[in-house]
Amino acid sequence: MNLLERTNEVRSQLKEDLSKVQNTFQSIEDFRLKYIGKKGLIPSLFRDFSALCATEKREIGKILNILKKDAEKAVQNIQDRFADSQSGEDEFDYTLPGVPFNRGHLHPVTQTMNRICDIFKEMGFGIEFGPEVETDFYNFQALNFPDNHPARDMQDTFFIEDDILLRTHTSPVQIRTMLKQKPPIRILAPGRVFRNEAINSRSYCVFHQVEGLYVDENVTFGELKVTIEVFAKKFFGKDVKLRFRPSYFPFTEPSAEVDISCIICGGKGCRLCKHTGWLEIMGCGMVHPNVLNTCGIDSEKYSGYAFGMGPDRITLLKYGINDIRLLFEGDIRFLRQF
């Protein structure tokens, strides 16, 4: 057999062996050694090639070189294939769950309170606090609730002593702040409050309030309106509609309740809004002159507005929670949802 015939023979053998190579290191190595290893078939062809005359060399050289390159390429391919399979691409299960990093988070009411505070902080309100155990003076008298007045019935009270009680709203913080600071005063008072009411799905004896107060020269009802509107649109979405209804609180006059268009039905009427299209979200009004004067602020020179809302109720509305007690029971299945 001459060299040309042997070369063709090796080529067809290579083709056949290549189809039989298994995807294992040994099989691939065997294949490599057989053809392009130092003692392999192709180097041996080259050794014989060097003995040929120039004419024959010209005839066969090209063919032999092509065979060499093809063999090298084939080896490279099967080696790459093996390497890929070894990298585990097939076994890599990208659907495995990721590391469950610390999943804890804040209570839904805290989240609501923080959002409320953030919005008003953007509008220049500072945050103030006051005690949960209060005196009758701060909780009622200074807020223009006279003794023996039916307005006191609006807020059933837990008493500690005759003149000491659990605050029924965070409004005492307004009084404490006004007694301590000079106008302009622009504050927000978040905190826990207490009402002596039977516990059921709609009311709990402990809940939260966020109250705001602004006292300065020439504060108007129109300023109150726009402040509440900015808050409501930032909190509930810019398409929300507002309405102000006259109401009564002893410490503000004029007083108003603020309703927003129902966040579920948009005002068409549904179960949440009891088919009225509106949801009550807060009370507000212009600070009563008696309150300003009690705090040593001249009500002729200064005016102000105040507002107050219940983050618990807003949380219930926002998430569609139907029982306020869930907020205070700490059921982990409940807490995990927010």
Binding site: G124, P184, D216, G222, F244
Partner: peptide, 23 residues
């Protein structure tokens, strides 16, 4: 204001923010 209608009171055009060193 209750007879005039609170909804007829225009929103103020400006909201004031004062420097506050107390908080």
């Amino acid at each position: 204001v209750r007879i005039y209608g609170m909804h007829n009171v225009p929103n103020a055009k400006v909201m004031r923010i004062q420097p506050n060193y107390e908080t």
